[in-house]
């Protein structure tokens, strides 16, 4: 099995646009149909399958990525709209050896079960802590209210984000 490039990004006879996106710090030049969703470019074109699709109405947030640092549901953005922008996916959240505090918090507080919402949930949480380093529980709940989870009942996610906030402020080691 491989996670190779599929035909969604290179297709004979279809109107294609060349775009340049920086994904997890790496500059990528790809040709895409204008209708291609960013989520599918990431998953199938660039083999970054950590970004998930859980709905078709922009409700669940499993596809959340950071576009220039802002959480965006990548199922509701065309790949061509990402031209010239910087995208961060879960694969670029921490380094392979060093996890982001949010990732570490999710593990320590058991904030994931099936793991399907986890990438989007962590990216939203990461962005929250960038703009609000010391959120209240209420603020965390509102911040992640665009991300659905079917497994955890949210409680441990809230704890994980608060743990990450404390870690980032030097409170825990």
């Amino acid at each position: 099995m491989s996670y190779g490039q599929s035909s969604v990004v290179r297709e004979v006879g279809v109107d294609e646009r060349r775009i340049t996106v920086t994904v997890n710090g790496e500059k990528r030049v790809v040709e895409v149909e204008p209708r291609l969703l960013l989520a599918h470019l990431l998953r199938e074109g660039l083999a970054l399958t950590g970004t998930h699709l859980g709905c078709d109405t922009t409700s669940c947030g499993a596809c959340t990525v950071l576009v220039d640092g802002t959480p965006v549901k990548s199922c509701t953005m065309l790949a061509v709209q990402a031209d010239g922008h910087e995208i961060t996916t879960v694969e670029g959240l921490g380094t392979p050896s060093e996890l982001d505090p949010v990732q570490e918090g999710f593990s320590r507080e058991h904030a994931l079960q099936c793991g399907f919402c986890t990438p989007g949930m962590m990216l939203t949480s990461h962005a929250l802590l960038e703009s609000n380093p010391d959120p209240s529980e209420e603020e965390v709940r509102w911040a992640i209210s665009g991300n659905l989870c079917r497994c955890t009942g949210y409680q441990n996610i809230v704890k994980a984000v608060l743990w990450a906030a404390e870690k980032k402020s030097g409170g825990v080691s």
């Binding site: 970054l48 399958t49 950590g50 694969e91 959240l93 999710f106 793991g115 990438p119």
Partner: peptide, 10 residues
């Protein structure tokens, strides 16, 4: 199992 899910490697 968390190790892979946290990194988008499920």
């Amino acid at each position: 199992e968390d190790a892979r899910f946290l990194r988008g490697r499920g």
